[in-house]
C-alpha cells in the first residue's frame, strides 16, 4: 500500500518536473517573437478595467529605490513618493478607496516585461513617454514634466552636459531613456549601466564614475539623500512622464485620464506635487 502511494507521488513529481523543465529549457520554440505574443494580443471578453473592478484591487508597478517618487522606507517598510500618491489617488477614483492597491517593485529594466506579462495593471514609475515605447504600451496623459540632468559630487569639474566628453565615465540605469540620450549628446563618453538607481548612486559615491545621469526629478531625490552631491546644469531633454498600460486597454486608459484630470481640477494634484517636489508645478 505504502509502495503504491509512493509510486503515485513519484509519477506526479516526474510529470510536474517535466512540465517545469520543458518550459524552462525548451520554451524557445513555439513562442516566436516574445514581444508580439505578449504585447499585441487583445483578450476576448472582459477588459482589464472590468477585471480590476471585479477583483477590487489595483496592481501598480512602482519604483522602490527612487527617493521622492517611490522609495521603500526601511523603518516602516512602506513605499512612499509622488508616484505612490498618484497611484493611490487613481485607486480612489477607479475603485473608490485609495487603499485598494497593491504595489509591486519594478526597475526600468523589468517594468515593460512585467506589464506585458499581466503582472501589473499599470506602470507609474518615472517613465518617460517615447515613440518607441508607444509601440510597446499605451500611455496616459503626461502627469509629470521632468528633464534629464546630471548629478555630480560637489566640486566636480563637470558643471554641465558640455563638460561630458571622452574619458568621462557616466553612470546610468539599464533600460532608461537617459542612456540613449546621453549617448547621443556625448557620444565619446563611457556609459556604464546598472540594475537600478540605488546601484548607480552607490557607484557614484564609490567613485566608479564621474557623473550620474537621469531625470532631474530623480536626481533631486538623491541630492536630498546625500548633501555631498548636487545637480548641475540645465536639463537637456524633455522627459514627460506617463502612466503606461498594456496595449489596447482603451477603457482603462480613459479611466486613468479621467482620474488624472479630476485630480488636477480638484487641486489634489498640486498638493501631492508640493508635498514631494517642494514647490508648485509650473504652468
Amino acid at each position: 500500500m505504502r509502495k503504491k502511494w509512493m509510486s503515485v507521488s513519484f509519477m506526479l513529481f516526474v510529470i510536474s518536473a517535466l512540465v517545469l523543465a520543458a518550459c524552462g529549457g525548451g520554451s524557445g520554440n513555439g513562442n516566436g517573437n516574445g514581444n508580439s505574443a505578449a504585447g499585441g494580443e487583445s483578450e476576448a471578453g472582459a477588459s482589464l478595467l472590468d477585471e480590476i473592478k471585479s477583483r477590487d484591487k489595483l496592481v501598480v508597478g512602482v519604483k522602490f529605490d527612487t527617493k521622492l517618487f517611490g522609495l521603500k522606507d526601511p523603518a516602516s517598510g512602506e513605499v512612499e513618493g509622488f508616484d505612490i500618491d498618484i497611484a493611490k489617488a487613481l485607486a480612489k477614483s477607479i475603485l473608490g478607496d485609495e487603499n485598494k492597491i497593491e504595489l509591486k517593485e519594478v526597475t526600468s529594466k523589468t517594468r515593460i516585461p512585467m506589464l506585458n506579462n499581466n503582472e501589473i495593471d499599470m506602470i507609474i514609475a518615472t517613465m518617460t513617454i517615447t515613440e518607441e515605447r508607444r509601440e510597446q504600451v499605451d500611455f496616459s496623459e503626461v502627469y509629470f514634466e521632468a528633464g534629464q540632468s546630471l548629478l555630480v559630487k560637489k566640486g566636480s569639474p563637470i558643471q554641465s552636459v558640455e563638460d561630458v566628453t571622452s574619458g568621462t565615465k557616466v553612470l546610468a540605469v539599464k533600460g532608461a531613456t537617459s542612456v540613449d540620450n546621453i549617448k547621443e549628446i556625448a557620444p565619446d563618453a563611457t556609459v556604464l549601466e546598472f540594475e537600478n538607481y540605488q546601484d548607480a548612486f552607490s557607484a557614484l559615491k564609490a567613485g566608479q564614475g564621474d557623473v550620474l545621469t537621469t531625470d532631474n526629478s530623480i536626481l533631486y531625490g538623491m541630492m536630498a539623500q546625500d548633501a555631498n552631491y548636487e545637480v548641475v546644469g540645465e536639463p537637456f531633454t524633455d522627459e514627460p512622464y506617463g502612466i503606461a498600460m498594456k496595449k489596447g486597454e482603451t477603457a482603462l486608459v480613459e479611466a486613468v485620464n479621467e482620474g488624472l484630470a479630476a485630480l488636477k481640477s480638484s487641486g489634489e494634484y498640486n498638493t501631492i506635487y508640493e508635498k514631494w517636489i517642494g514647490e508648485a508645478p509650473s504652468e
Binding site: N31, N35, S108, I112, K174, G175, L192, E193, F194, A203
Partner: peptide, 20 residues
Amino acid sequence: AGLDLMYFGDQIASRTYVTF
C-alpha cells in the same frame, strides 16, 4: 557594468524590448 555577455544582453533586451 562589467561589459560581459550578460551586461550586453541586458542592453540589447532593453533596447529592442524583445526580452525572450
